[in-house]
Design a binder for these strands. Structure first.
Lengths: 125, 125
DNA sequence: CAAACTGTACTAACCAAGATAGTACACCTA
DNA sequence: TAGGTGTACTATCTTGGTTAGTACAGTTTG
């Protein structure tokens, strides 16, 4: 389901957050689909449950998943996530990053048409 | 020139790297324009020169700036940076991030036309 | 030449964040 | 009842980031 990169300087719990968020927003995990349990994922990735727990807790705070004690954790609906308190800021942050990325790709010599093409090429992947 | 956010979990040297890279790729710093000296920036930001040095060294490795001992550090030309050893990987990484960002913005309910509009809105900012 | 810059290169030390280990409780389901 | 689940702690260890200090060589300016 997920792979960790120990060479990466980013913390493990951050890699897990990004990986799960990526699967949720790209539709690989459908709304209300059950995520792996904290303990099972800890076994699979051979890391401490507390580290998984931290990722899940933050994803829940940010509205990408919801957890039911005793049952499990589940992917949120995009519309629900968008209503989250944190999300006006989140969206502004995403747009800022998007502009920076595009600026760097232009700096490296890519044309806008190529950049837009690359975005759509990746749909569903 | 730059501002640091101590609430941010990202390391200081990383914030400096991103800030300078942003100014270079967006054209705020023109090719061959001189950057602040390591020591002067350390005084301005009230942090240790070693921390600035680390940011400069990595930016040089990645091709965004070049340094001349005794003189100073300068912004690279985009074309030169693009020829850097690290840059095929870099470009692939940027495209991956771009797709993830777009996927999340779609998940939050934005249309492609709105996303593209937001990119061009920000030109020169 | 001299003084004051510049980048570069170390060593040593401190500190906070990340990660681990362990335990415990309450809830759900087969 | 047994075994799974999320939640919530405490204590400990390790690592990366940051600081402090010193030093050397090259450039520029007076």
């Amino acid at each position: 389901m997920l792979t960790l990169n120990y060479r990466d300087s980013r913390p493990i719990y951050g890699q897990i957050k990004d990986g799960l968020r990526r699967m949720i927003v790209s539709g690989i995990l459908e709304p209300d689909e059950k995520l792996p349990s904290i303990r099972s994922m800890a076994v699979d990735l051979a890391i401490n449950p507390n580290t998984i727990r931290r990722a899940y807790a933050e994803l829940e705070t940010e509205g990408f998943i919801y957890s039911v004690p005793g049952k499990g954790s589940y992917a949120s609906h995009g519309a629900d996530a968008a209503r989250m308190r944190s999300h006006p800021d989140r969206q502004a942050e995403l747009v800022r990053r998007l502009r920076d990325l595009v600026a760097e790709l232009r700096y490296l010599g890519l044309k806008d048409s190529e950049i837009i093409a690359m975005i759509n090429e990746g749909v569903g992947q």
